[in-house]
């Protein structure tokens, strides 16, 4: 007998094989798509077709539930790892002109003498996001917000590209380099805290996370406290607030002191 005769209903093995498989499929499909959906007393279906669609995972428009009113603005910036990835020289030049007004606080070389963040060599996507958030009100600061409100989209991109282009220079008050504290390299898994270094450098970098090496200790501490208290809320999906809230005051100290003591040129090792 050849294989051709196999694929006919005259062949017993064909009948049995196909029959059993088809039977199983029908029985399990009826159970999975009809019986079990209706067995859930907490879900109501209009009809059988409705139940089948639900069990099949057909996307459905949620019933007209209005989203809860947000009292404060949240960040609306969308970042990908390609945001501002390829700046051109002109954009950087325009950014340099625009950035003159930032120099009072952030320093003429992008390195701050006050406790404002150092911007020289910061990732463009990071500056881009923060400026947007200041502009929209998702993040607010008495000094920064008025600068940001009048910036156009293009100006924000240019400034971001300019600062990203500047070389990373040592901070003004270098302190001896501290060893990595636990929170930076292990996080605290039992409290759901990933290592700081997994996103902010020292271990790895993730899109939208600034590198922190050489930033002012006072600034870092203030931000962690603001995130923990909810005063600052422009982190997407509460990524940082969830962490900051779970951190102990000692961990906040340790992380801030560690990052402040690192020379920024170590950042290069991981990009």
């Amino acid at each position: 007998m050849s294989t051709r005769d196999l694929f006919t209903f005259g062949n017993r093995h064909f009948r049995i094989g196909v029959g059993i498989v088809l039977g199983m499929l029908i029985v399990t499909a009826i159970a999975g798509f009809v019986v079990l959906p209706f067995a859930q007393p907490w879900v109501q279906f209009a009809n059988v077709w409705d139940a089948i669609c639900s069990a099949a995972g057909v996307p459905q428009r949620a019933a007209s539930v209005t989203a809860p009113e947000q009292t404060k603005r949240l960040s609306e910036v969308v970042l990908t790892s390609h945001t501002l990835a390829r700046p051109n020289q002109e954009a950087i030049g325009r950014g340099a002109t625009l950035a003159q007004r930032c120099a009072i606080c952030h320093g003429p070389t992008g390195v701050s003498r006050a406790d404002s963040p150092n911007l020289a060599g910061q990732y463009a996507a990071v500056i881009y996001k923060e400026l947007h958030d200041f502009r929209s009100g998702a993040r607010s600061n008495a000094v920064m917000s008025p600068f940001a409100v009048n910036l156009t989209e293009e100006e924000i991109a240019d400034i971001s590209n300019y600062y990203a282009y500047l070389p990373r220079l040592p901070a003004y008050h270098p302190t001896p380099q501290l060893p990595k504290p636990n929170i930076v390299i292990y996080g605290a898994p039992m409290r759901g805290i990933a290592p700081c270094g997994a996103c902010h450098g020292s271990l790895d970098n993730k899109t939208g996370s600034p590198w922190l090496e050489g930033q002012s200790e006072a600034y870092l501490k203030a931000q962690l406290q603001a995130l923990a208290s909810g005063e600052r809320r422009n982190d997407i999906s509460q990524q940082m607030r969830n962490i900051a809230r779970a951190m102990t005051p000692q961990e906040v100290e340790a992380a801030a002191a560690y990052y402040a003591s690192q020379p920024p040129d170590v950042v290069k090792a991981v990009d």
Partner: peptide, 13 residues
């Protein structure tokens, strides 16, 4: 992203 009905069929098989 997978419907429960398909999960059931896969589980039964």
């Amino acid at each position: 992203q997978v419907g429960a009905g398909f999960k059931f069929i896969h589980s039964a098989f």
